[in-house]
Structures are given as C-alpha cells and as structure tokens.
C-alpha cells in the first residue's frame, strides 16, 4: 500500500520529489508511513506555497522592446542578460526563462521568473528580412519565427502567472494583435501590466496607449535608456509580488 501511494506521488510530482527520494526511501524501508506522509506534504507545500516565484511572461508585438526590457531587469537584479536585441523583428524565436529574479522594493523582496517571449503576429513574410540577410537565412528566420509565435501562445495558455505587455509607444496601439492578446490575457484572468516603451522617441504617446486600454495600468518607460525604471519595479512588485 505504501508503494502505491509512492508511485502516485512520484508520477505526479516527479521533478520535485526526486530531490527528496532518499527521504522517501528511508521512510519506506523503515515502514514509517507517517514520515512518508510528512515528506509528501513538505513536497506539496513547496509546490503550492506562495514562495514559488511567479512566472511573468513578457508579451507584445515584434520589436516592441521585450528583450531589451527583460535584459534590463535581469541585469539590474542578477547581473546577466537573457537574450539578444535587434531592430530586425522576430529576433526572439524561443521563449527564454530567467529564474529567481529577486527585486528589492521598500525593504521587501519579490522573486519572479521572467519569460521573454517571441513577438506575436498573425503573419510572417520572409521577404521582409531579405534586405538584411541572405534568402536562405530569411526563410529560416521566418520558419523559426512562426514556431516561436506558436510557442509564445502556448506559454500564455499554460505556463505564465502574470503578463507584462510591452508596446512601442511611438506606434498605434490599436491593432488586431494587441486587442486579441489583451483579450486572451483577460480571459485567463492573469494580472497584466502594460508597459509603454520607447518614451525616449519623439513620436511616443503614452496617452494613446492609456486610452486604448483604460482597464489596465500603463507604465511609461524607456527600456533602452533606463528611464522610469523605479516606477517599473514598483509596479512589478505591487502586481506580481
């Protein structure tokens, strides 16, 4: 009977249980069911406790500055970067996670995992890249981009606990992709912050974004210049802490 219980717990919680396997075995060999139960409940505590860092997905259209922001946050609090930034859209073609980013705010500390995702779109045309690279590379980039978008959508449905939605504030925020994605995020009841990025640009309009999505908090920033990062971290701590 003990063995059955253990099978169940191993298959359901395998990655975490593995660390505790010696304890589980010890409990089994000693025939101490209560100790096994303790061990399982410690595992489940850890799985479901508030201490688990929340996974915050950084979403938005291609080129909005998601990776630039993810890198800035990661560099500010962990010292290293997450991915490469580029003026060519679809630079990020795989979701990348940075674990345990510990952000200090007003003497409190908030730990999150940051997931930098590929920019979402409904179309990819490799010919848009052929000015910048050989046709073969452009075709590969577009194929990887489509896989990346699908992956980003999958993460959004399954694997994130909150969303930072990054927009280029120099561009019109009312696009079908933005409206659809915000709708998808809302339908999943995920906490969301809208980041109006690139406020260093002359054409930037934060108000246009606030007016487009009045139901959400909008934080202006320049991820590239590092402008207004204090408010960025305050908002992250308040929403995702």
């Amino acid at each position: 009977m003990n063995v059955n219980v253990c099978n169940v717990c191993l298959s359901e919680f395998s990655p975490v249980v593995r660390a505790d396997t010696p304890r589980v075995l010890e409990a089994l060999t000693m025939g101490l069911f209560t100790e096994l139960k303790d061990s399982i409940s410690r595992v489940t505590d850890r799985l479901f406790s508030d201490q688990e860092p929340k996974r915050i997905g950084i979403y938005g259209p291609p080129n909005a500055g998601k990776t630039t922001l993810a890198n800035r946050i990661a560099r500010d609090w962990t010292g290293d970067a997450i991915g490469t930034e580029s003026h060519i859209p679809h630079e990020t073609r795989r979701a990348r996670r940075k674990e345990n980013v510990q952000i200090e705010r007003n003497g409190k500390s908030v730990t999150i995992d940051i997931v930098d995702t590929p920019g979402v779109t409904t179309k990819v045309d490799y010919e848009e890249f052929t000015d910048e690279m050989e046709e073969e590379d452009a075709i590969r980039r577009s194929r990887e981009a489509t896989e990346g978008v699908a992956e980003a959508m999958h993460w959004l449905r399954e694997d994130v606990d909150g969303v930072i939605y990054v927009l280029d504030s120099a561009e019109d925020p009312i696009t079908q992709v933005n409206t659809m994605l915000i709708g998808i995020i809302e339908s999943r009841d995920l906490p969301v912050l809208i980041f109006a990025n690139k406020i260093d640009l002359e054409e930037s309009s934060v108000k246009r974004i606030e007016d487009a999505f009045p139901q959400h908090k909008t934080v202006p920033l320049s991820a590239k210049e590092g402008d207004n990062m204090d408010e960025v971290y305050d908002a992250i701590a308040a929403y995702f802490g």
């Binding site: 409904t122 990819v124 075709i139 577009s142 489509t146 699908a150 449905r157 659809m180 709708g183 998808i184």
Partner: peptide, 20 residues
C-alpha cells in the same frame, strides 16, 4: 483566437502562405 494564431503559424510557408 489563440488557437487560430497558433494554427496559422503552423501553416505559414515561404512558398505561398504568409499568414492572415
């Protein structure tokens, strides 16, 4: 909509279909 985006991505190919 989320499934539509995902399925569209899977069907894009350089010889003809750019998406929607």
């Amino acid at each position: 909509e989320s499934k539509l985006i995902e399925t569209t991505m899977a069907e894009i190919n350089p010889d003809g279909f750019n998406g929607i």
